[in-house]
Amino acid sequence: MEWMAWTWPTAIFFLIIAATLIIFTILAIKFPETPRMGVLRMETTRGDRLFIALLGSAFVNLAWLGLLSAPQWGALIVSFFYAVAVFRWV
């Protein structure tokens, strides 16, 4: 495992991702859903919306880092609101 060069921040990051995936899997089994049509005019399920939220957040963080010199947690706040918007409207 040493060659994988684990650090606490990256381990926590992956644990959160893994936990989210497990929670969404359980949700999908316990409460099956029908895909719905959102503002992007395409059918999405909860899983799709999670994917869009995560991928978009990665780009929000990169854009924040590249364009602004503000602390990085600002990007996390923006990502949070972005994710809420995705789950609400997409």
Partner: peptide, 8 residues
């Protein structure tokens, strides 16, 4: 995961 670890 290893690549992510290396990136930091």
């Amino acid at each position: 995961m290893t690549v992510v670890n290396y990136a930091f």
